[in-house]
Simulated assay, not measured.
Amino acid sequence: MRFLSRRLVMPNDLNFAGSLFGGRILEWIDEEAYIFASCQLGAKSLVTKHIGAITFETSAFQGDVVEFGLQVKSVGRTSLAITCLVRNKHTKQNICSADDIVFVHIDPETRQPTPHGKTKEQLDDFPEPL
């Protein structure tokens, strides 16, 4: 799993109890997974079709740095499924996981699913970032 990005938990990210709001982390997961899928496929015309099981394991608080680990789970003809793990950068404790985030490649004009032309093997060979 590649941990490619980080975010700082700010005051406006907190819920009434003073911990990271679940809706905010889901927003971040969707955004990070889209960026990862888009980079993997070399395409920006992707839509989120499905986000599977979400598991919250521990809280994050103001000032914590959270990092997002992403990996390709499976590849379809027009789709790509991603797994995301969010953890505390310093403690390495898992905060949240989202298994089975599915994006569909669409034609930008017709908005219909269209083949992306990639295989799991091609994406598994994707080079590590610098």
Rank of each mutant, 00 (worst) to 15 (best):
S74Y: 05
L46E: 03
K44W: 10
M1P: 15
N12E: 11
H50S: 11
G76S: 12
D13S: 07
K120G: 01
C39M: 09
G18S: 04
T78S: 15
V47G: 07
V65W: 09
V66Y: 07
V66C: 14
K120Y: 04
Q93L: 04
R24M: 07
L85F: 09
G23L: 04
T110Y: 01
F36L: 00
Q40A: 02
K49N: 05
E109A: 12
R111C: 00
V72R: 12
K120M: 09
T91D: 01
D64P: 09
N15W: 01
H105P: 04
I29E: 02
A43Y: 00
L14K: 10
V75Y: 10
S45Q: 06
I101C: 08
T78K: 15
L14M: 13
L41Y: 02
P108C: 05
L80M: 13
A98E: 12
K120F: 08
T83Q: 14
R2I: 14
R24C: 05
L41K: 06
S59D: 08
A53T: 12
L123T: 02
D13T: 09
Y34W: 08
F36K: 03
L130F: 07
G23A: 06
P127Q: 03
A98D: 12
G23Y: 02
H90Q: 12
H116I: 04
R6F: 00
K49A: 13
A81F: 00
A60D: 09
Q71G: 13
Y34E: 06
M1Y: 12
F68R: 14
E67A: 13
V104G: 01
H50P: 01
L20D: 04
E57A: 12
H116C: 06
L4C: 11
F16D: 08
F21Q: 01
S59E: 07
V75K: 08
S79T: 15
N94E: 09
G18W: 02
V66G: 15
H105G: 05
T119N: 06
A98F: 06
P113N: 06
E67I: 07
L80S: 14
W28Q: 03
D30S: 13
E57L: 15
G63P: 14
A98I: 08
M10R: 15
G117C: 02
D99S: 11
F126D: 03
E57R: 15
C84S: 13
V86P: 13
V66E: 08
V47C: 02
Q71I: 05
P127S: 07
D99T: 15
R24T: 11
V72K: 11
T48R: 01
V75S: 11
T58Q: 14
E109V: 13
S79V: 09
H116N: 05
L130Q: 10
F68Y: 14
L123H: 02
D100A: 08
T110E: 04
L20G: 09
